[in-house]
């Protein structure tokens, strides 16, 4: 009997001193395990005289119950302590940021994407044409015959007498209209080439050509479309101004100015004090072009525009030099990430 009491005292006092779940588990095995001390005690029952055995057995079982509940209590106590300790000790400096963000799209792609998305929603299809282009599509089909003075506006890179690097994305106008009858709503983004190189001119740059041909297309529709683009690119207060100009493949032709996004039209160094920034050329498709592509110019009218993507990006993001677009310094590229 004294062994039972002794064990109880030993076990409970050890249990009392137990401070970790691991040592608790060890202790549990030591006392309550299959080969533990309590089991050993129970086995020693055979050494007792038979009349003492029932009492002894009952006492041992009583002790087992007692110890088990003590262990359970201690376990939940330790778990609680452990939880509190973790809550107290597990700490992270959440202020630290040290990760590589997603890569960035090139600003040319960003502007192309913005404009494409806006116009796709208006029913425009996005097409691509060849960069090495025939003189026919780049010039002649657009009402620019050989020796036309308008060819001087664009210093052309030639590959042969009749093959060149396209100077504009406009050839896609003729390529599409030859194949397709109205309604046509198309844009063609892509690289164009001109023999010119300084801070605002690059021998390679990107244009987006726009073309709409259908019945009832007017100059007002051109203005409305460009106002829609401008307000989405530069903010809702952006105004669009037309100035007379000349392109052989549109008539009337206009230069399109937007209110300066830098000063809001008050006049600043970016807009040279005028409050306006020239962004693109546009006009109503010249009936000569429609007819040469086999489209009835009496029935159909259309508008076309061609905008410089880098020019838009330079204004939108405040990029001072076009050469930065092609140098691709990582510190430049990363600024356009999200």
């Amino acid at each position: 009997m004294s062994k039972i009491m002794e064990m109880e005292v030993v076990c409970l006092s050890t249990l009392n001193e137990c401070t970790s779940l691991q040592s608790l588990q060890e202790l549990k095995v030591r006392f309550l395990g299959k080969t533990g001390e309590l089991t050993g005690l129970l086995k020693s029952i055979k050494d007792l005289p038979p009349e003492e055995r029932p009492t002894f057995g009952a006492k041992v079982n009583e002790l087992r119950n007692k110890l088990e509940s003590a262990f359970a209590e201690k376990q939940s106590q330790l778990k609680e302590q452990e939880l509190q300790r973790r809550l107290r000790d597990e700490k992270v400096d959440v202020s630290l940021v040290n990760m590589q963000p997603w890569g960035a799209l090139h600003p040319v792609t960003l502007v192309e994407k913005t404009i494409s998305d806006l116009l796709i929603a208006m029913g425009f299809e996005v097409l691509a044409g060849p960069e090495i282009e025939s003189d026919w599509y780049n010039f002649q089909a657009l009402n620019i015959p050989a020796d036309h003075p308008a060819r001087d506006m664009q210093d052309t890179f030639y590959i042969t007498d009749s093959i060149l690097l396209r100077t504009q994305t406009s050839p896609m106008q003729a390529r599409l209209m030859e194949k397709k009858q109205p309604p046509i709503k198309m844009i063609c983004p892509g690289k164009v080439f001109r023999s010119d190189s300084d801070a605002s001119h690059s021998p390679v740059f990107h244009q987006i050509e726009g073309l709409v041909v259908d019945e009832n297309i007017t100059l007002c529709d051109l203005k409305g479309t460009l106002e829609y683009l401008a307000s989405n690119l530069f903010g809702p207060d952006t105004q669009v101004r037309f100035r007379p100009s000349y392109f052989p493949f549109t008539e009337p032709s206009v230069e399109v100015d937007l209110t300066c996004s830098n000063c809001g039209g008050k006049g600043c160094s970016l807009c040279k004090g005028t409050g306006w920034i020239e962004v693109l050329g546009a006009g109503m498709v010249n009936p000569v072009v429609l007819e040469s592509c086999g489209i009835d110019s009496k029935k159909y009218t259309g508008y076309a525009f061609g905008l410089g993507v880098e020019r838009i990006a330079m204004i939108k993001y405040g990029i001072p030099d076009i050469r930065l677009f092609y140098e691709c310094d990582l510190r430049f590229l990363k600024q356009f990430g999200k």
């Binding site: 299809e125 309604p183 259908d214 019945e215 009832n216 297309i217 007002c220 529709d221």
Partner: peptide, 11 residues
């Protein structure tokens, strides 16, 4: 004044 091709066909 700007209009948004209200009289043209849907594409």
């Amino acid at each position: 004044t700007g209009t948004l091709m209200e009289k043209s066909r849907i594409t």
